[in-house]
Design a protein around this nucleic acid. Structure first.
Length: 252
DNA sequence: ATGGCTTCATAGTGAAGA
């Protein structure tokens, strides 16, 4: 089963790229973040014509998540249970016996921002929920834009990023806490090229100079075996790309 | 250099992203 995650930074702008990517890679599941699309405007006909079913939870301007799947999704969960949040950042569903949890974790903006406190509280609620969810669904995959670079090797210039969101110690601790409840970083189960990133700043020719971060991840529960995991840089080279690129894993 | 791009909502710029 091939599963993937991609922050598209507006599904409206990136729809043709998503269609092309689906046709080329034929994933069983594709989790999208930052669709920035209200549910009433979701392009579900285009997705259906590409051969996929889809569930989505979106809003105007910001956030928005969707799960595209070959087989139908069941037992949908919108948002983190018992965690009040206007922002559409979480969508879970079961596909082919695998619990797919699609997350767009808050950015945090800066360490002194209220949004950073929101991010840490959000991560705490996510971890508490997933601990329960793993009991209900031993076969679980957590995919999405985490807005956390787990280690210095996931950062093009760690010294330049000190004191920034995405790399701070509390954020990395939250990531490790997800690993402590059993989730494994699929990407790090395999030998990978050095300087592997999933996001590059639009500015300063970030992609051309490979000044990026690895902040999009696929975490897998112990019950899921994984035979491959890679980052697909190709869509980042297209005209009008998303600043993120897809991460793909093959699980059984 | 608190910039630099891109998106959205909006109708000239501002917020937000990472």
């Amino acid at each position: 089963m091939k599963i993937a995650t991609w922050n598209v930074n507006s599904l409206k702008v990136r729809l043709a790229q998503v269609q092309d990517w689906l046709a080329e890679h034929q994933p069983d599941v594709l989790c999208l973040q930052e669709t920035k699309t209200e549910d009433a405007n979701f392009p579900f006909v285009a997705v259906q014509q590409a051969g996929y079913q889809v569930v989505y939870s979106g809003q105007k301007t910001y956030n928005g998540v969707a799960i595209l799947s070959r087989q139908s999704a069941t037992d949908m969960q919108y948002g983190i249970p018992n965690f009040a949040d206007e922002q559409k950042r979480v969508l879970a569903a079961t596909v082919d016996g695998v619990r797919i949890v699609n997350v767009y974790i808050p950015n945090g903006q800066s360490l002194d921002s209220d949004k950073y406190q929101y991010k840490l509280a959000w991560l705490n609620a996510l971890q508490a929920w997933l601990k329960e969810e793993l009991r209900r669904y031993p076969r679980l995959a957590l995919l999405g834009d985490y807005n956390i670079a787990p280690e210095d090797r996931d950062v093009h210039d760690p010294a330049a990023w000190v004191g920034n969101v995405l790399v701070s110690e509390p954020e990395r601790a939250a990531f490790q806490k997800l690993q402590q409840i059993g989730l494994r970083d699929a990407f790090r189960l395999f030998e990978q090229p050095e300087k592997s990133y999933s996001w590059w700043d639009y500015r300063m020719m970030g992609f051309r100079r490979n000044q990026g971060l690895r902040i999009d991840h696929i975490l897998l529960s112990p019950a899921l075996a994984c035979s491959a995991c890679s980052i697909d840089r190709a869509p980042r080279k297209l005209e009008r790309p998303s600043d993120h690129t897809p991460v793909v894993a093959e699980i059984t």
